[in-house]
Write a protein that binds this DNA or RNA. Structure first.
Length: 333
DNA sequence: ACCAAAAGCCGCCAAC
DNA sequence: AAGTTGGCGGCTTTTG
């Protein structure tokens, strides 16, 4: 129940022996606001929920001052010159648009600061294309890492020394964490909170953030799902994901979408690139994997993921993964 | 391992 | 004229 922060708390902490954990979010010109705001909210909510937690979240940039983000809002930042590298426990490098990112990673002063931080901090992480900064500074060499799903190929080709995992929401390799696109930064922050405290508390934060389902790092980051989430069936897919245990057949889905079955099928394939049936099965397999990883029984996993029976689940697992649910669990628990 | 019933999916085509 | 829609039949896969 206690933070694993390495630093001593402030000099005044005579009566209250709270452990402080300093989270520094590094932002560049044209930073992606959600990369910053998501983790920041997660950590600060944690402080509200657990009186023993004491995360101190700071936004930093090379020059400090107001920083314009990609959505037009501005962010107040602290110059890195005022942040002692040794005082940082967790560093998070936020993603930014190409121009801002390219400019920032050339900065000598920033590189030397970040390198120092990497030596002493307990966690070095990035969200979205922030991983390019870490990679550029050589911090991800011989490490597993990920990035926004649209950028993983680029990361792989630009940095052959980095072991890029394009199928992950976020990746953890010892103290180096990299999250995929934008909102996966929240999933990563929750995993960090879980590491510092407990699963239960991290789950409570997820609840406060009203996340429909918390995604584990090793869950596949289906680009079809991500693509689909901006399209015509975004709301429907969200609904499907939250109601996996209902019968999600074509008849009911078409009705939900107010379309004829024939047109629904056709449009869905055009939009998502997969037939409705296959898509639903994908969702269910993912949910079952997650449940099994969490230690659920095959029966419980089947029920949770919307398979009509444990036999059904087993059959689909055999077809897709060529293993039984229990085998999967013992392999991935 | 098998089978029958059900569901999924697609080509075709007449009707917008 | 070209494009979209959705009902129908039937082949294939899934399910119990």
């Amino acid at each position: 129940m206690r933070l694993s922060a390495k630093k001593q708390s402030s000099p005044k902490s005579v009566q209250l022996a709270k452990t402080r954990h300093s989270v520094v979010i590094l932002v560049f010109e044209q930073a992606q606001m959600l990369d910053v705001a998501g983790p920041a909210d997660a950590f600060s909510l944690m402080n509200d929920i657990d009186p023993l937690s004491h995360y101190k979240v700071t936004c930093a940039s090379v020059a400090g001052g107001a920083m314009r983000t990609s959505n037009g809002l501005t962010l107040m930042t602290c110059p890195i010159s005022q942040i002692k590298p040794k005082s940082v426990d967790t560093l998070i490098v936020a993603g930014a648009q190409r121009s801002g990112l390219l400019k920032a990673i050339q900065d000598i002063e920033l590189k030397s600061w970040a390198t120092k931080v990497a030596k002493t901090a307990s966690r070095i992480s990035s969200v979205c294309v922030g991983s390019f900064a870490l990679a550029h500074w050589g911090l991800l060499n011989h490490r597993r890492a990920t990035s926004h799903w649209m950028a993983t190929e680029l990361l792989r080709s630009n940095f052959p020394m980095v072991d890029v995992d394009s199928s992950a929401i976020f990746v953890r390799d010892e103290k180096f964490w990299t999250a995929g696109g934008v909102t996966s930064g929240i999933d990563m922050a929750l995993a960090m909170i879980e590491q510092d405290t407990t699963k239960l508390l991290a789950g409570q934060v997820a609840g406060m953030l009203v996340m429909s389902s918390r995604r584990l790092g090793n869950q596949a980051q289906y680009s079809t799902i991500l693509k689909a989430q901006s399209g015509r069936y975004a709301a429907l897919i969200d609904w499907m994901n939250d109601h996996l245990s209902r019968p999600l057949d074509i008849v009911s889905l078409a009705a939900k979408a107010n379309e004829s079955e024939r047109s629904f099928c056709r449009r869905f394939i055009a939009e998502v690139g997969q037939s409705p049936g296959q898509f639903v099965e994908d969702l269910r397999v993912s949910a079952a994997k997650r449940a099994l990883q969490g230690g659920a029984s095959a029966k419980a996993a089947a029920k949770l993921a919307g398979f009509s029976s444990p036999e059904h689940l087993a059959r689909v697992f055999r077809k897709r993964l060529d293993m039984s649910p229990v085998e999967y669990r013992s392999h991935h628990a």
